[in-house]
Amino acid sequence: MIHKYQLNGYNLCLDVHSGAVHVLDDIAYDVLDYCDENMKEQPPEKMLSELSVRYGIEELKETYEALYELYQAGQLFSKDDYEQFADLMTRAPIKSMCINISHDCNLRCEYCFAAKGDFGQGRCLMSLDTAKKAIDFIIANSGTRHNLEVDFFGGEPLMNFDVVKQTVEYARSIEKAHNKNFRFTITTNGLLLDDDKIDFINREMNNVVLSLDGRREVNDKLRVTPNGKGCYDIIVPKYQKLVSKRGDKDYYIRGTFTTFSKDFTADVLHMKELGFEQLSIEPVVSDPKLDYSIKEDDLPTVFNEYERLAKTLIDMRKRGEYFNFFHFMIDLDQGPCAIKRLRGCGCGNEYVAVTPQGDIYPCHQFVGEEKFKMGNLNDGTFDQDMKLRFARANVYSKTNCKDCWAKFYCSGGCNANNYQYEGDILKSHRVGCELEKKRLECAIMIKAALADCQDEQKSTCDSDDCFVECR
């Protein structure tokens, strides 16, 4: 299977089952239409006949020969022999956990999937006792995994920061005895950040996700306090302080775009202007009936915006200006292994979420869905059958995924979105799929453009001094 497409002046071809990405000139792009899984050494007569009105016969033969070489090398129309690995998918050790340390929030964001902080379960904070049980649970269920990951989430985690600190301290005190290495992340709306919290986060958290939707008017339209006021002016200086003291440790400024802010390139650029470089803006996940939701009719506009953002990123990097957009990150040389791509995010199998009451769910977006409650830390229950069900939810068991060109990049998409929109974790959510495919097309095109940029620099400059890293 291949996926060929044109974007920003590039003719691109992804060979799905090898992962090879080819940039083609016009003739190769046209000849490819006459190739399939059963290429023969001799060029098809139909191709020579039909394309000879536009190209010379010898050039057509030469081009076909080049494509046939790729076919023989297993880099074009390569075979799908991954299903055997999918069949082996069984329960894996739990290696990561979302701890909902707070089911309370000091914001009332209109689009919050956590029902404005409490996941519909009433406002409460996790006790240290429950948090310690969560740490014990992941250690006990992680098998031989060395790296364990814990994300402090909510609600607003800073509303229960003493328990965050004590939980980290507890995990650090026992990790070596169990041959584990904890990597912590925290996601915050920033309102309660102060110098002490910034120092602790920068010392202990491998990654920090800072919520901001972009421009002041965009952010303050939906990210509001209980009395309806925006939070932009409070949080931005705190984020700038945190990031300035963070050194080279990971962070993301992470926003949500809605149908009201489909011009989100301006929000990404605004984040860059504020001094941030690691940026992420995701489409809102919500009931399609709500006025801010992204609907099927919005897709053409959003697609154009992703293209605009991709071109902007390329232009800026050519000028030596850098920012990273999370959903355009793609490693074509050494991305995740095929097994990881089959497993996907690991929701319900390698990854679980726990609530202040000690309830266990497949992930942070399933919290509150009673039929997906997997167990409880306090009574020691854990539904292994549900774990197996999620373990078997991979690209070969999901409707529409097996024959999709993007399957090894989206890994079957989001189980929670599938359930919320389609009522079944195995049924792909169409809008989410289309958005993911567009982001992938842009990400691959960016790689082609930056490779071109490097080639041009090599050919136009004899000195290393003028080299701008197109990374």
């Binding site: 090898s18 992962g19 990405v21 030469e62």
Partner: peptide, 16 residues
Amino acid sequence: HIKTLNKANLKESAAK
């Protein structure tokens, strides 16, 4: 007519 951007190793990674 063709520039390949990467050294594809997806199949190798399935085994390893």
